[in-house]
């Protein structure tokens, strides 16, 4: 029928330029673990390792669905298998242990509870033998609201778009400061009051053991940003 109709219309293919849009919110209960050097706030060294233990450890996956959990720029998001959910009576806990040469071992209990689907766990490493107090990062200043819509791009599949659900970090563009937590991006959308007008920022997400960045100057209240996410395109 469509073919017959098209003969007279010399029209476009109905599916021309239509993308396949895929969400990444498979894992619903997540925790972003951000490991930093407690003395200067910089990301944990590249050779830092993370180990998850506890009764529920077998049900823990990296945000991209991989069993292999590793830090990238000191960050990793872990979460529960999609068929497992904590209840009000029975939260689910695991232990995250961080090891890095030259630093003391750090362990932290991470609890997934029914009422909190996302959480950020900051772990500061202390250098072996150091007695210096950990650095305290002041909270970022507050501005007017800005909406960001992120679209994940697959470099090898131009017909596919990703709507990422990930934790977003930011810092002033060109700065060597540590990335700060901006917020949780739900299906590509995040609204924040931590961005100043007329300032440029680097935004960072960590997914599938990879770190992805994009830069944007903020002089409007809404932006559509595209970010390469090859780790989300393995299907």
């Amino acid at each position: 029928m469509v073919l017959i109709m098209c003969i007279l219309s010399a029209c476009k293919k109905p599916t021309e330029n239509i993308k396949i849009v895929i969400d990444t919110d498979v894992i619903k209960y997540t925790a972003m673990i951000n490991v930093t050097d407690g003395q200067d706030g910089s990301p944990a060294p590249a050779n830092s390792t993370i180990t998850i233990s506890g009764n529920a450890a077998s049900n823990i996956y990296e945000l991209s669905g991989k069993k292999n959990i590793q830090l990238s720029a000191g960050m990793v998001t872990i979460g529960l298998h999609p068929s497992i959910a904590p209840t009000a009576d029975q939260p689910i806990s695991v232990i995250a242990e961080i090891n890095a040469p030259g630093y003391n071992k750090e362990s932290r209990q991470i609890t997934f509870s029914a009422e909190k689907k996302q959480q950020v766990v900051n772990i500061q490493l202390t250098r072996t033998g150091s007695t210096a107090p950990p650095v305290v990062t002041p909270p970022p200043p507050v501005y007017n609201n800005v909406s960001l819509t992120f679209t994940g791009r697959c470099p090898n599949r131009t017909d596919v778009e990703i709507r990422p659900s990930v934790y977003v970090y930011f810092r002033a563009a060109g700065s060597n400061a540590a990335f700060q937590y901006l917020g949780y991006m739900d299906k590509g959308n995040i609204s924040t009051n931590l961005l100043a007008q007329n300032a440029s920022y680097d935004f960072q997400i960590v997914f599938g053991g990879e770190t992805y960045k994009v830069n944007q100057k903020i002089d409007q209240t809404a932006y559509n940003l595209t970010i390469d996410m090859p780790a989300a395109c393995n299907f």
């Binding site: 029928m1 109709m5 109905p14 330029n17």
Partner: peptide, 10 residues
């Protein structure tokens, strides 16, 4: 946009 011209039905 793709199907806006699909109006002739022979």
């Amino acid at each position: 946009n793709n199907i806006k011209d699909y109006r002739w039905l022979p």
